Amino acid sequence: MTKVALITGGTSGIGFAVAQALSKTGLWQVNILGSNQKKGTEAAASLPGTTFYQADVRNYDSLAIVFDQIFNGGRRLDFVFVNAGITGYTDHYAEEPDTGIPPKPDLSIVDVNMSGALYTSYLAMHYFRRSPESTKGDRHMIFTSSIGGLYPCALGPIYSSTKHALIGWVRSTGPRLWTEGIRVNAICPGVVETPIIDNPAFDSLFPREMWIDIQLVSGTVLNLLSGTEMVDGKGTLVKGDEMHSRALHISGKTFFFVEMPDFHDEASPLTWNAMMYGSLNL
């Protein structure tokens, strides 16, 4: 039976590359979401088995309607790619004139990268749970984080903060959702040539030999969707039944599993265990 994929930010860049890779298999009904009707219609028309839906991930009601339409089309949902995101490089350190209260900062990056991702994740959980019982264990939610979600980024601290937050979300929710047959993982690419960084300044900041082939990114996503064991660039093997709650740093010509920080005393793992597996009777 044909599987159903939903990809936010699917009209260009990494989202479109993944849609293209899925479309080529002939095994998926691919649904790409974006805010630009013209671009989305053209993108979907170029890929067999692909449909475009106009939706702004910041608008929960609009996003929820699209999820419902897609689910009701086949009464299943197998893969949600939480990919929509924007960058921002306004000077967060700029000093304002000393004339009183400074102007409100622009946090639109948070609205898209964080709020939009959480709305998407929340809806994905709902429709995964309504999918056929046979799909348990093969339901996938993959987030697009960034190298800026693993390491600090002084150039874009707000952007970096949102991408760090996605790693926290994956590691926090992944173990619980795995018990429901939902695999939650995050990819963390370095510099990939996509419209999100369509700026000549990037060429001088990041030499081309540092850039990552977008096909490596889409290929890594398809490997995650297989649910089988994977081996990273350092030879670390993760078995199929442990392939969840992971952060994969995509760099150079391969990827690397990035683990949580080590614990430094005896109290820390006890605290973390309570945070992860305890309950509050409020």
Rank of each mutant, 00 (worst) to 15 (best):
T228P: 00
L224M: 05
T25L: 02
L47M: 02
W28Y: 08
M125P: 12
F206R: 04
I158S: 10
I212A: 03
G34M: 04
A186E: 08
L177S: 13
H249W: 08
H164G: 13
H264G: 07
E193W: 07
Y119S: 10
N72I: 09
H92S: 10
S160R: 15
H244P: 02
T99E: 08
Y277I: 14
T90A: 09
C188E: 04
G252T: 11
S108K: 02
A5F: 10
S121Y: 03
F128Q: 06
H140K: 11
I7H: 07
T90C: 15
Y159R: 12
I197W: 08
T254R: 00
L237T: 15
K163N: 09
L6D: 03
F206E: 15
T25E: 00
A274M: 03
S145E: 06
S46R: 07
T179L: 08
F16C: 02
P200Q: 10
I147A: 09
L205W: 00
R130T: 14
D78P: 09
F67L: 13
F206Q: 05
I147R: 01
V191H: 04
F52Y: 11
G252E: 07
E242I: 01
T220M: 08
V231I: 09
T51H: 04
N223G: 02
Y119A: 10
S172R: 10
S62Q: 14
V18M: 01
G181T: 09
